[in-house]
Each structure stands twice: as structure tokens, then as C-alpha cells.
Amino acid sequence: MLRNARQAGLEPIIPSFQYSIIPWPRPGFSLCGILHLLSHQGGPGFSFGGIVQLLSRQGGPIAKRSEASFYEGVTMKEAHHKGHGKTYKYGMVVDLDKCTGCGACMVACMAENNLPFRKDNSDRLRSSLWMRVYKISNGLPFPDMEISYIPRPCQHCEGHGHHAATPCVSVCPACATDYSHETGIVSQIYTRCFGCRYCMAACPYHVRIFNWWDPTWPKGMEKYLNPDVSVRMRGVVEKCSFCYHRLQRARNKAYAEGRREIHEDEYQTACTQACPAGAITFGDLDNPEHKVYELKKSRYAFRLLEELGTNPKVYYVSTRDWVRKAGDVYTGKKGNDVMPA
């Protein structure tokens, strides 16, 4: 059951390292390169790009070709930190009028990203959920009462103006979380996080969760874990990565086929694919060919807590006025009559 999200994927799992035929390090191989790679392993940072960077220190032909193909003459570091070269802005549009609150997105996310659970997982303040569905109501008595569900992944905030940095990224003392200007994705390096939880305090959306326990699964279930996603140890903070490993896989595939661009349907998050109502749409917010480009322009579109200046990349659409107000109490300004249901 838990493999449904995987089965719904577009292609079989191909671990990123298989494509990157890495020659064994020669004598004189850069120690710094290895350390750089090691320091990123296990997180979304362990990427095709990381391997490319490692190889590029050797000046091998593969490195030159692949870097040229994906980063168009700029280094991966420049693309990542400064947004040089071709950039993307992956984001999501969620149609709240379509969402039925079934929770399939939460289940798919848990299965895809190896999220642990406990026998009694009812304590929502300590459970591990990257995607969480909130239930809200307009607070009116029957028959005027209305319900809406708000699926809430990481908002992958960009920040802007005075707040030029993502709220959580700017506060992390150990650079364990990062905003990629190349993809617009906020990453988390689990092996570097030491669990100070400052980022959790900084995030107004509660998307960041702490591993209060060692991750465990019922006997035999560990065989069904996703090999593309590392299992996180206790004492570190984790969050939705927009299924970054799927982007890595799509890029590897494109590279193997000699392509520079990946198609919209090649990189979709698990929650998007699992949603039976088709409420979630995912893609490059800046690409006119992607569906999200038009959807986010809807007059009914809004983002959570826009007034704070976090500049999130998850848009919500609802034709219901009270739902839009609920999304941003600061935009509503008149106060809100929303009740957490």
C-alpha cells in the first residue's frame, strides 16, 4: 500500500550515483572535494551536482560536459547561491475547493520520504508529518457552516525586500539548511543539523519537525523504505523537500538522454501524484509552459501569511472569501472569524 506513490512514479528508481560513472579517485584527488561531498551526503545536497563538482576537480570529460549542460557556463555553486545561469522556481498551487481532506497526500509523503511513525501517532505536536492537512471552518452554525481543508507542505519561502532571506535559512547557525536560487527549493542537510531548533522557532507555518525519537518501523517494513531518501536520525530537524530526489532522478535521466531540460511531468512531488481530486499542481512557477504559471495568477489565488514578507512558493486557490481570509489573517486585516475545526 505504502508503495503506491512510488508505483505512480514515471520511471523506475534509478539512484543518482548509477548514472554518474565515477572513476575511482586517483592519487592527488582533492581531499577538500571528498570532504565537501561527505558533508552533504544524506541530504538533498547529495546530488548529481555534488558529484559533478567532485569530478570537475579532476577535470574529467564527464564533469565538463554535464556541468556545461545543466549550468550553462556557470559553476554549480554560482547557480545555487547566486542564481546565475538558467534558474527555476518550483512551486505548488493547491485548489482548496477541490481538496476533500482525504489525506492521501500525507500518506504518499510519508511513504515517499521514509517518515517514521509510532504505535500511537495521535500526538500531532510530536508526530512526523512533512505534509499536513488542516481542517478549518467558517464558524457559522448549521446550515451555514462550511468546511475547508488546507494541505500544508513546506512553503519554500524566498523572502524579499527587507527580508531578503528565507526565515529559517537565515537563522540556522550551522548552514544546515539552504535556499537554492537555482531551483527555489529550501533544502535540509540532516547530517549537518545538530538540532538547535532555531529554524523551527523561525518558521510561522510549523512545517519543520524535530525527530523526538529514533526512527523505527514495524519489522519487515524497513525493506520498503525508499532508497533515494536517507532516513533521518533522532535529534535533527527535517521538513518537506519538494521530493528533491525526484528532481535529481529526472535530471539524471535527462542527462543520460542528452537533454538539457526536464519536462513538467518528469518532476512531480509524491503528494501531487497521490491527490485523487487533482487539487495539487506542481511545476516551475516561472515557466509559462507549466500549469502552475497560469494557476497562480488566478484572482482567487493567495498565499499563507503573505503580509509577513516570507514570499512562499505554495499558492492556494479558493473561490470562497472566508477561506482566503483564513489563509492570511494579516491580509484579511478585519480580523478573522475562522475556527480551527
Binding site: 549537518r192 545538530f194 538540532g195 538547535c196 524535530f210 536520525m233 535529534g235 530537524v237
Partner: peptide, 10 residues
Amino acid sequence: IGQPLRGWFI
């Protein structure tokens, strides 16, 4: 901190 052995990362 959740991972005291990594305290030096700061």
C-alpha cells in the same frame, strides 16, 4: 541540542 556530539558544527 538534539545531537550534542555535533555541537562543534556551530
